[in-house]
Amino acid sequence: MDTVLEVIGWIGTILVVLSLTQSRVMRFRWMNLIGSLLATLYNGVIGIWPFFAMNLAISVINTYWILRLNRERHDPGVYKVLPMDPEDPFLQHVLAVHAKDIAAHQPDFTAKALGAARRATFLVTRGDEAVGVVAVRDEGGGTGLVELDWVKPRFRDFTPGEFVYRDSGVLTAAGFRRVEIDTHEALDREYLRKVGFSTQGTRWVRDL
Protein backbone atom coordinates (compact mmCIF):
# COMPACT_ATOMS: atom_id res chain seq x y z
CA MET A 1 0.00 0.00 0.00
CA ASP A 2 2.80 2.42 0.89
CA THR A 3 4.49 1.74 -2.46
CA VAL A 4 1.26 2.34 -4.38
CA LEU A 5 0.68 5.56 -2.44
CA GLU A 6 4.20 6.77 -3.19
CA VAL A 7 3.69 6.06 -6.89
CA ILE A 8 0.43 8.06 -6.84
CA GLY A 9 2.22 10.94 -5.13
CA TRP A 10 5.07 10.95 -7.63
CA ILE A 11 2.73 10.72 -10.64
CA GLY A 12 0.78 13.69 -9.30
CA THR A 13 3.95 15.70 -8.77
CA ILE A 14 5.28 14.88 -12.24
CA LEU A 15 1.98 15.84 -13.92
CA VAL A 16 1.83 19.17 -12.11
CA VAL A 17 5.41 19.99 -13.10
CA LEU A 18 4.92 18.86 -16.72
CA SER A 19 1.72 20.89 -16.98
CA LEU A 20 3.77 24.04 -16.47
CA THR A 21 5.69 23.28 -19.68
CA GLN A 22 2.53 23.20 -21.83
CA SER A 23 1.75 26.11 -24.13
CA ARG A 24 -1.77 24.87 -24.95
CA VAL A 25 -4.25 26.17 -22.39
CA MET A 26 -6.57 23.16 -22.22
CA ARG A 27 -3.75 20.63 -22.09
CA PHE A 28 -2.19 22.58 -19.21
CA ARG A 29 -5.51 22.67 -17.32
CA TRP A 30 -6.20 18.93 -17.71
CA MET A 31 -2.68 17.84 -16.73
CA ASN A 32 -2.66 20.21 -13.79
CA LEU A 33 -6.11 19.01 -12.69
CA ILE A 34 -5.18 15.32 -12.77
CA GLY A 35 -1.87 16.01 -11.01
CA SER A 36 -3.49 18.11 -8.30
CA LEU A 37 -6.23 15.50 -7.73
CA LEU A 38 -3.61 12.79 -7.24
CA ALA A 39 -1.67 15.10 -4.92
CA THR A 40 -4.89 15.79 -2.97
CA LEU A 41 -5.44 12.05 -2.53
CA TYR A 42 -1.83 11.46 -1.50
CA ASN A 43 -1.72 14.28 1.04
CA GLY A 44 -5.12 13.35 2.44
CA VAL A 45 -4.13 9.74 3.06
CA ILE A 46 -0.87 10.63 4.81
CA GLY A 47 -2.48 13.54 6.66
CA ILE A 48 -0.52 16.54 5.38
CA TRP A 49 -3.51 18.85 5.57
CA PRO A 50 -2.05 22.18 4.39
CA PHE A 51 -0.93 20.54 1.10
CA PHE A 52 -4.21 18.60 0.92
CA ALA A 53 -6.12 21.89 1.13
CA MET A 54 -3.85 23.62 -1.39
CA ASN A 55 -4.15 20.86 -4.00
CA LEU A 56 -7.90 20.57 -3.44
CA ALA A 57 -8.23 24.31 -4.10
CA ILE A 58 -6.09 23.98 -7.25
CA SER A 59 -8.32 21.13 -8.43
CA VAL A 60 -11.44 23.24 -7.96
CA ILE A 61 -9.86 26.17 -9.83
CA ASN A 62 -8.80 23.91 -12.72
CA THR A 63 -12.28 22.40 -12.91
CA TYR A 64 -13.82 25.87 -13.07
CA TRP A 65 -11.52 26.94 -15.91
CA ILE A 66 -12.01 23.75 -17.91
CA LEU A 67 -15.79 24.17 -17.72
CA ARG A 68 -15.55 27.86 -18.59
CA LEU A 69 -13.16 27.35 -21.51
CA ASN A 70 -15.36 24.59 -22.94
CA ARG A 71 -18.40 26.84 -22.61
CA GLU A 72 -16.63 29.72 -24.37
CA ARG A 73 -14.94 27.78 -27.16
CA HIS A 74 -17.95 28.13 -29.52
CA ASP A 75 -19.19 31.48 -28.18
CA PRO A 76 -19.13 34.24 -30.84
CA GLY A 77 -19.30 36.74 -27.99
CA VAL A 78 -15.82 35.67 -26.87
CA TYR A 79 -14.03 35.40 -30.23
CA LYS A 80 -14.28 38.19 -32.79
CA VAL A 81 -13.26 38.20 -36.46
CA LEU A 82 -11.87 41.49 -37.79
CA PRO A 83 -11.36 42.06 -41.53
CA MET A 84 -7.85 43.48 -42.05
CA ASP A 85 -5.96 45.07 -44.90
CA PRO A 86 -3.34 42.49 -45.98
CA GLU A 87 -0.65 45.14 -45.54
CA ASP A 88 -1.85 46.32 -42.12
CA PRO A 89 1.25 46.90 -39.92
CA PHE A 90 -0.15 45.09 -36.88
CA LEU A 91 -1.21 42.10 -38.98
CA GLN A 92 2.23 41.95 -40.59
CA HIS A 93 3.78 42.14 -37.11
CA VAL A 94 1.71 39.16 -35.91
CA LEU A 95 2.70 37.16 -38.99
CA ALA A 96 6.37 38.04 -38.55
CA VAL A 97 6.47 37.17 -34.84
CA HIS A 98 4.91 33.74 -35.51
CA ALA A 99 6.55 33.12 -38.89
CA LYS A 100 8.29 29.90 -37.81
CA ASP A 101 5.11 28.30 -36.45
CA ILE A 102 3.10 29.48 -39.46
CA ALA A 103 5.67 27.96 -41.83
CA ALA A 104 5.36 24.60 -40.03
CA HIS A 105 1.60 24.52 -40.65
CA GLN A 106 1.28 26.41 -43.93
CA PRO A 107 4.69 26.10 -45.63
CA ASP A 108 3.63 27.80 -48.88
CA PHE A 109 2.21 30.93 -47.24
CA THR A 110 3.97 34.26 -47.84
CA ALA A 111 3.04 37.18 -45.59
CA LYS A 112 3.97 39.79 -48.19
CA ALA A 113 2.04 38.29 -51.09
CA LEU A 114 2.19 39.58 -54.62
CA GLY A 115 -1.18 40.90 -55.71
CA ALA A 116 -2.25 41.54 -52.12
CA ALA A 117 -5.40 43.27 -53.39
CA ARG A 118 -6.75 39.81 -54.25
CA ARG A 119 -6.30 38.59 -50.65
CA ALA A 120 -8.93 38.99 -47.94
CA THR A 121 -7.38 38.74 -44.48
CA PHE A 122 -9.10 38.23 -41.14
CA LEU A 123 -7.70 38.57 -37.64
CA VAL A 124 -9.32 36.38 -34.97
CA THR A 125 -9.22 37.97 -31.51
CA ARG A 126 -10.10 37.02 -27.95
CA GLY A 127 -10.58 40.20 -25.99
CA ASP A 128 -7.66 42.42 -26.99
CA GLU A 129 -5.38 39.51 -27.99
CA ALA A 130 -4.80 38.35 -31.56
CA VAL A 131 -5.16 34.55 -31.55
CA GLY A 132 -5.28 33.62 -35.23
CA VAL A 133 -5.19 34.70 -38.87
CA VAL A 134 -7.14 33.49 -41.90
CA ALA A 135 -6.10 34.67 -45.37
CA VAL A 136 -8.17 33.93 -48.48
CA ARG A 137 -7.15 34.61 -52.07
CA ASP A 138 -9.90 35.64 -54.48
CA GLU A 139 -9.91 33.21 -57.41
CA GLY A 140 -12.90 34.84 -59.08
CA GLY A 141 -16.48 33.68 -59.47
CA GLY A 142 -17.12 33.88 -55.73
CA THR A 143 -14.47 31.25 -54.93
CA GLY A 144 -11.72 31.87 -52.41
CA LEU A 145 -8.60 29.77 -51.81
CA VAL A 146 -7.62 29.68 -48.13
CA GLU A 147 -3.90 30.47 -48.12
CA LEU A 148 -3.60 30.53 -44.33
CA ASP A 149 -5.67 29.29 -41.39
CA TRP A 150 -3.42 29.66 -38.35
CA VAL A 151 -4.01 29.86 -34.60
CA LYS A 152 -1.56 30.47 -31.76
CA PRO A 153 -0.49 27.18 -30.12
CA ARG A 154 -2.07 28.06 -26.76
CA PHE A 155 -5.49 28.49 -28.43
CA ARG A 156 -5.21 25.52 -30.77
CA ASP A 157 -7.51 23.36 -28.63
CA PHE A 158 -10.36 25.84 -29.20
CA THR A 159 -10.37 26.06 -33.04
CA PRO A 160 -11.29 29.79 -33.10
CA GLY A 161 -10.87 29.77 -36.88
CA GLU A 162 -14.35 28.24 -37.01
CA PHE A 163 -15.82 31.72 -36.46
CA VAL A 164 -14.45 32.86 -39.81
CA TYR A 165 -16.28 30.05 -41.63
CA ARG A 166 -19.44 29.71 -39.53
CA ASP A 167 -20.67 32.68 -37.58
CA SER A 168 -19.07 35.97 -38.51
CA GLY A 169 -20.35 36.42 -42.09
CA VAL A 170 -17.05 38.02 -43.04
CA LEU A 171 -16.42 35.70 -45.97
CA THR A 172 -19.77 36.34 -47.63
CA ALA A 173 -19.34 40.06 -46.92
CA ALA A 174 -16.03 39.86 -48.78
CA GLY A 175 -17.85 38.40 -51.81
CA PHE A 176 -17.09 34.70 -51.36
CA ARG A 177 -19.71 32.00 -51.87
CA ARG A 178 -17.31 29.09 -51.61
CA VAL A 179 -13.88 28.52 -50.04
CA GLU A 180 -11.35 25.84 -50.89
CA ILE A 181 -8.13 24.57 -49.32
CA ASP A 182 -5.34 22.70 -51.07
CA THR A 183 -4.41 19.39 -49.46
CA HIS A 184 -0.94 19.32 -47.88
CA GLU A 185 0.90 17.20 -45.33
CA ALA A 186 0.41 19.52 -42.34
CA LEU A 187 -3.35 19.91 -42.90
CA ASP A 188 -5.58 19.26 -39.88
CA ARG A 189 -8.29 17.19 -41.54
CA GLU A 190 -10.32 16.65 -38.37
CA TYR A 191 -10.56 20.41 -37.82
CA LEU A 192 -11.69 20.97 -41.41
CA ARG A 193 -14.48 18.41 -41.04
CA LYS A 194 -15.63 20.10 -37.83
CA VAL A 195 -15.95 23.49 -39.54
CA GLY A 196 -17.87 22.10 -42.51
CA PHE A 197 -15.30 21.27 -45.20
CA SER A 198 -15.46 18.13 -47.33
CA THR A 199 -13.09 16.70 -49.92
CA GLN A 200 -13.52 17.27 -53.63
CA GLY A 201 -10.61 16.00 -55.69
CA THR A 202 -7.35 17.40 -54.32
CA ARG A 203 -9.05 20.19 -52.34
CA TRP A 204 -11.20 20.64 -49.25
CA VAL A 205 -14.32 22.64 -50.08
CA ARG A 206 -16.96 24.53 -48.09
CA ASP A 207 -19.96 26.33 -49.56
CA LEU A 208 -20.94 29.46 -47.63
Rank of each mutant, 00 (worst) to 15 (best):
M1S: 14
D2M: 14
V4A: 15
G9D: 08
W10G: 03
W10H: 14
V16I: 11
V16W: 00
V17W: 09
L18F: 10
L20Q: 10
L20T: 12
S23W: 13
S23T: 14
R29L: 02
W30N: 04
G35Q: 07
G35W: 00
S36V: 00
T40P: 01
I46S: 05
F51I: 08
M54A: 13
A57E: 05
V60T: 08
I61K: 00
I61L: 09
N70T: 11
R71S: 14
G77A: 05
P83H: 03
M84W: 06
D88K: 04
P89Y: 06
F90L: 14
H93R: 15
V97K: 10
A104N: 13
T110F: 08
T110E: 13
A111T: 09
L114A: 13
R118C: 09
R119K: 08
R119M: 15
T121V: 14
R126V: 10
A130L: 03
V136L: 03
E139C: 10
G140M: 05
G142R: 05
G144T: 11
E147H: 05
D149Q: 06
R154D: 15
F163N: 02
A174R: 03
A174I: 07
T183P: 00
H184C: 06
E190Q: 12
K194D: 13
G196S: 07
T199R: 12
W204C: 03
R206A: 04
D207E: 15
